[in-house]
């Protein structure tokens, strides 16, 4: 019950934040987004004048970071609803950059505006989702970055252990990553103390392990009995310290950090689950004596790693 409440609260905050991010182009333009490789779609709130819309000279497009380099607009198409236009550029756009579309003498409905600028950027949810999937599958910390292997091989013998470890790890991961992110952004960076990264981050990890331990013990003793044993192991897992370091390097914001931490935790869970399923079957298989135990587990992990290479370079949005 309490968990549901917390999840709902998280979702609410999350929705609020993304809502703020989207509600920027208010007045006349309803929506502006990228389309095909060289196209931008702009939807207005009212019908616009056809002659104005078809004139290429009324539009200019540039990347936000390079305002002096204009991107040539080769054609403007007006859709039959008379509200939506498609700008066709002379070259392909780099969709990772925020683009600005400027318009002159806009004739919309009965009004005329002298000038207007619209920001076009990638769909923010899509970006967040791609961070999440990226951390979980494409750059899975176990199979493509080779981190957290000690705990990975130690706890993947049975499915039940694997799931328990994965869940505990994800919870602690999210806690500690968010705290580390906060401390890094608001304490370490402003005071030029980033050389203390390692000490502070490992401190945050121990702190969140301790906190989860205490809270779980009081709130839900049954759950604590099931998952308490794994809490100690969390601290020996490299991933838990690697994620804050990556966050600090890449200057992610709060929501993006949450997504990466969650993706990393769930990615570890997925890896553990897959591995434990195989290892349960390996128990029954005829393995050469010198390969029994860890060696065969390593070879299996190698096969998984090869399979995960298939994800590499995949981009969703």
């Amino acid at each position: 019950m309490r968990t549901t409440k917390i999840i709902l609260l998280c979702l609410f905050v999350f929705g609020l934040l993304s809502g703020i991010a989207l509600a920027e182009n208010v007045n006349v333009v309803r929506k502006a987004s990228f389309d095909k490789a060289n196209q931008i779609i702009i939807e207005f709130i009212e019908e616009i004048e056809e002659a104005w819309a078809k004139d290429v000279n009324n539009f200019y497009v540039y990347q936000k970071i390079n305002p002096d380099i204009l991107i040539g607009v080769s054609k403007v198409e007006l859709l039959p609803d008379k509200r939506t236009i498609t700008l066709v550029m002379s070259e392909d756009l780099n969709k990772n950059e925020v683009h600005i579309v400027g318009m002159k003498n806009i004739k919309i409905g009965k009004q005329t505006f002298p000038k207007l600028q619209v920001q076009v950027k990638k769909f923010y949810f899509g970006y967040l989702f791609s961070i999440f999937i990226g951390a979980m599958l494409v750059n899975n910390f176990v199979f493509t970055k080779y981190l957290g292997l000690c705990v990975f091989f130690g706890t993947s013998r049975k499915k039940s252990t694997a799931v328990g470890m994965g869940i505990t790890f994800t919870i602690v991961m999210v806690f500690s990553a968010m705290m580390s992110w906060f401390l890094y952004q608001f304490v370490l960076k402003p005071f030029n103390l980033s050389f203390l990264q390692v000490v502070v981050f490992i401190g945050m990890v121990s702190l969140s392990v301790q906190a989860v331990d205490t809270i779980l013990r009081k709130v839900n003793p049954v759950l604590f009995k099931a998952f308490g044993v794994y809490l100690v192991l969390v601290i020996a897992n490299c991933i838990i310290i690697a994620v804050p370091l990556i966050l600090a390097d890449n200057e992610y914001n709060a929501v993006e950090s949450l997504m990466l931490a969650l993706g990393a935790g769930l990615g570890f869970l997925v890896a553990l689950f897959l591995m434990s399923s195989v290892r349960e079957r390996l128990e029954l298989a005829l393995v050469p004596p010198s390969f029994r135990g860890l060696p065969i587990a390593f070879v299996t992990a190698g096969l998984f790693a090869l399979a995960f290479m298939g994800f590499s370079g995949m981009s969703l949005f």
Binding site: F291, V299, A305, M309
Partner: peptide
């Protein structure tokens, strides 16, 4: 290749 690390370690342990 990155994945070969696993194979190498596994084989050497064996």
């Amino acid at each position: 290749l990155p994945a070969a690390g696993f194979f190498c370690v596994g084989l050497m342990m064996a």
